[in-house]
């Protein structure tokens, strides 16, 4: 039963991601991406990661895409009018590399069947792990990374502030 839900959610995520890329109007593509993120959150729950699913919805779909929407509104970016300048070389190169890449990737995933060397064959997916274990691990083995990410957020804060501040009359 879960397999069905998982496949459905994955399919939804992929379809809306395609919509996002193909969409002309940035607002439509942001919304399509939001739906795709929600579908991903569903898959995370099925993959025994409830905490991450909640995080995905709150941070990704909630904060980042809202920031995008805010920016699109602020700068009133209109739908992208094809400006008629077809650059044959670049689009050809781009699409060629993408097709090759996609084929390679999917071929490999299909072929390898993703056997893991010497790992447990089937993991019993009975109890959803509680986030407490995650927290304990976070503050023991990965404390330094936690601090590094906090410095990173501070750097991003300073950077964003510097770039986006309105010119104060100096």
């Amino acid at each position: 039963m879960e397999r069905l839900i998982f496949d459905a959610a994955a399919l939804v995520a992929i379809v809306f991601a395609g919509l996002m890329v193909a969409g002309r109007d940035p607002i439509k593509s942001v919304l399509a991406l939001a739906v795709s993120f929600f579908a991903l959150a569903v898959t995370y729950v099925l993959l025994l990661a409830p905490f991450i699913a909640a995080l995905q919805i709150i941070v990704y779909a909630g904060a980042i895409l809202v920031l995008f929407l805010f920016l699109i509104m602020l700068l009133n970016v209109g739908p992208e009018r094809p400006d008629g300048v077809r650059r044959p070389v670049q689009t050809f190169l781009g699409s060629l590399s993408v097709v090759v890449f996609a084929g390679l990737l999917l071929g490999m995933l299909r072929a390898s069947g993703a056997r893991l060397p010497g790992q447990p064959e089937a993991v019993a997916a009975d109890a959803l792990p509680d986030p407490k274990a995650l927290g304990r691990l976070l503050f023991s083995d990965y404390l330094l990374h936690f601090e590094a990410v906090s410095v990173l957020l501070l750097a991003a804060l300073v950077g964003a502030f510097v770039l986006a501040r309105r010119e104060n009359a100096q």
Binding site: H145, A148, V151, L152, A155, V158, G159, A160
Partner: peptide, 15 residues
């Protein structure tokens, strides 16, 4: 840790 450190350096250099 390599990925986190790389991002920290990269973000500040973009700005």
């Amino acid at each position: 840790s390599i990925y986190v450190a790389l991002e920290l350096m990269a973000l500040s250099s973009y700005v």
